[in-house]
């Protein structure tokens, strides 16, 4: 029994050693640094900031900030089309849009927030991102005219293609691989 206890103790010590920094370079990341970099949004909504946006407000943001590239009706111009395509994924000419293809509402928020507008990424305030995302969902028939997007409602939006993804089954052609 004492042998087991000793082993456990040794194992605990080893774990502790493994948890200690070996080289000790760098410095503790500050709260400010982590906040600045903490813009990635999890599919469960983790990381979404305060604020909210309506479809109507989103239409205004879209016309002001997005339409010059994506077209007045999100039909696509310099930037890609953002509307339509539902029901086309299994056809010869699939149209992959936010409405037909993107599986998570949070991804749309995250991407608009981090990368749009293309020539001025980071320009939009959180409320504007909520609004414009609400508008894009609305024109794709995903949410109603009166639905408001915020940190609670957005992750609950079920995108039409949520269940449209499968794990990598490769190798699917060629000889079987030796594992």
């Amino acid at each position: 029994m004492w042998k087991l206890r000793l082993l456990l103790l040794a194992a605990a010590a080893a774990t502790l050693v493994a948890q200690m920094p070996k080289y000790g370079v760098g410095r503790p990341a500050t709260a400010d640094q982590i906040r600045d970099l903490g813009t990635a949004i999890a599919p469960d909504g983790g990381g979404l900031p305060e604020g909210s946006g309506t479809v109507a407000a989103g239409r205004e943001v879209f016309i002001a900030r997005c339409a010059k590239c994506h077209g007045e009706k999100a039909e696509g111009a310099v930037g890609p089309i953002l509307v339509g395509g539902q029901g086309t994924l299994a056809t010869a000419k699939p149209l992959k849009t936010v409405g037909s293809f993107w599986p998570y509402a949070t991804t749309v928020w995250d991407y608009v927030n981090r990368a749009m507008p293309f020539d001025q990424p980071g320009l939009l305030k959180a409320a504007e991102v909520y609004a414009v995302v609400a508008y894009i969902f609305n024109i794709n028939g995903i949410i109603g005219d009166d639905q408001v997007m915020d940190a609670k409602s957005l992750p609950k939006v079920k995108m039409p293609n949520r269940d449209g993804f499968v794990a990598d089954p490769r190798p699917d052609v060629g000889n079987k691989v030796r594992r």
Partner: peptide, 17 residues
């Protein structure tokens, strides 16, 4: 998700390929 996924004939897309 939207990019770098592989759309199959049945309309499903392979992810994390």
């Amino acid at each position: 998700t939207a990019k770098y996924t592989d759309l199959m004939p049945d309309g499903k897309a392979r992810i994390f390929t």
